[in-house]
Design a protein around this nucleic acid. Structure first.
Lengths: 335, 335
DNA sequence: CTGTTAGCGCGTTCAA
DNA sequence: TTGAACGCGCTAACAG
């Protein structure tokens, strides 16, 4: 038997079961309102016809679509896939479908996506949003928004506190004798970048270490390679990069230039997305993106069902994971 | 001014513009049917109220939802994110929203996702589907389906032909003096796996090389590490892995065991997702997933607008990318 | 417990 | 070129 192209409607089921649409509707939403006998009849008829409730029609009358939008700056950046995966499987548990959006690190694109999805989702999960606080607050006024790695007062948010891990990393470098280090930055609009940068500065000052800041808009392997000359020119003996991918690019370029790590330069990454897969294996700040994704999605689902718009601020702290790219500072001439 | 919670409807715009709903509807779908003057008035009113057509209501009456579902086995596997990204941005160009589904390599989960999305999408893009041919044909009978890396007669599909690249890789190894190699397999249900395995065998036979097949269900870094003992035990001098991630795991384990690559064992990956980021940099079969994603999505959109269900079979060929994990075969005792 | 009656917001005939 | 009326498939009062 070949499957029909047009799906059976609630009316056909009603007729087949000898009841009205209302009863069929109830059988699928609140069966406890019906007699067991009726429910049985209806399900039998539905099964027979291969009836499945029409989500769209249901959404039109209830306003609930059962969809959630998940927007990230760059799907291809290894930081996001595990997070996406975690959020997905959590959404799955609550029978939500998730739209995925890729903003390409561009606020305008992100805004456009939110508008496009707006009509058919109940809430948004914005990861590392590049939007302004004002824009975020505005969207949140229309429908529930949960943020990951973005700290906006009044909006439920899950933050991966890389500051703790970064501080540990700086202390680790200090204990190895480093007195001057560079911070290779990430995207301007990134909350994580501001946080990491501040953490590096603060810890360094406390330990009497000098910090050089090097800008680098797009966090990627290639930009990591390109930034190496500036790092070398700075005269620092260690570098902390915005993320693992950037650090990996640096590692490759350093290797290509015959500069040995960590003997001549120590390198630290962030987010630990590469694990021990680089060579030398990368010292990094731990990653909690999976928990962040899971937590944020649970939070969103929670808000959607309780409609209690709480101001939650969930913080996940991090630590430094020491591997093989950090070592003793090179001997330097004293002034 | 604070944004309203409830969006303006077509009726409010109609009233504000001094026309009926019909005209407003037409202004947004077929403006050429209206006088310029009326269209102008309507748009002005819409703009003023911040009116945006309700996708759901529109979908209910037209049957077009403007959504596409993209299902992959594992978002976190680096092969997929670039493909997803490419498909996304292509969908974006045609104003489609995309649902992302993660099947966890499980046919049942994939089926469940298809059912869940079914009600609100116009078509499916199934990547490396783990479903049976029969299941796929069945779904395709209900609504348009485009396949990536899955070859089912009658279903539009985009195939990355890794066979050409794998054959090149085998010849490359042969020219380096290898006489016995192992193929570290991928998921059973994977079309790519079958294709690669067959290509290895065929090329090897032609060149008089012996092949050992080693099963390995889940393609991941850890399983790559675990498989190393078997590889070593086989006595082969070279290994071709199902994908780069598996190969990377092998590399790490080999390094940990003090076995040097390629001096003692040559390793080849597939899909080239890691680029030159491993150490030693991995020889691999080229990756065309971005083109595959873009092409497949264009194809789907095309089918959706032309409703001409053509039997397309788009093949992208590959080559071997030689880097540093392949070298001369180790000297072996002659029998 | 079950049927009846209204919409949800929009597209689309059919007339005018 | 525009308007009036109906229907998409389902849920939600309101009766009974």
């Amino acid at each position: 038997m070949t499957p029909r192209r047009t799906r059976p409607t609630i009316n056909q089921v009603a007729e087949a079961a000898g009841v009205t649409k209302s009863s069929v509707s109830r059988a699928f939403t609140r069966p406890e309102m019906l007699s067991e006998e009726t429910v049985r009849k209806i399900f039998a008829a539905a099964e027979e016809l291969g009836y499945v409730p029409n989500q769209t029609a249901r959404a039109l009358s209830t306003g609930k679509h059962g969809n959630i939008a998940l927007i990230v700056p760059d799907v291809a950046n290894p930081f996001f896939p595990p997070l996406i995966r975690a959020a997905q499987s959590e959404a799955d548990r609550s029978d939500y479908c998730v739209f995925l959006g890729n903003s390409d690190e561009k606020p305008m694109q992100e805004d456009k996506l939110i508008a496009r999805f707006g009509g058919q989702v109940e809430g948004f999960l914005l990861v590392s949003s590049r939007l302004s606080d004002e824009q975020i607050v505005n969207h949140a006024a229309r429908r529930p928004v949960v943020l990951i790695n973005r700290d906006v007062e009044g909006i439920p948010r899950v933050l991966i506190d890389s500051a703790t891990g970064v501080a540990e990393a700086v202390r680790h470098l200090a204990s190895l004798g480093h007195r001057k280090l560079v911070y290779v930055a990430g995207p301007q609009g990134s909350w994580s970048n501001k946080q990491r940068r501040a953490a590096v500065r603060r810890s360094a000052r406390q330990l009497g270490i000098e910090v050089v800041h090097i800008a680098n808009e797009y966090p990627a392997f290639e930009s990591g390679r390109r930034i190496v000359p500036s790092v070398l020119a700075s005269g620092a003996t260690a570098a902390i990069a915005f993320d693992d991918v950037t650090a990996q690019g640096m590692l490759a370029e350093l290797l290509a230039r015959g500069i040995s790590v960590p003997e001549q330069l120590s390198v630290v990454g962030c987010d630990d997305v590469l694990g021990a897969t680089t060579y030398p294996s990368l010292t990094s700040v731990s990653n909690r993106s999976v928990e962040a994704g899971r937590t944020a999605l649970t939070l969103l689902v929670d808000i959607l069902s309780n409609q209690a718009i709480r101001d939650v601020r969930y913080v996940l702290s991090t630590t430094v994971v020491i591997r093989s790219t950090t070592g003793a500072a090179v001997a330097m001439a004293r002034p």
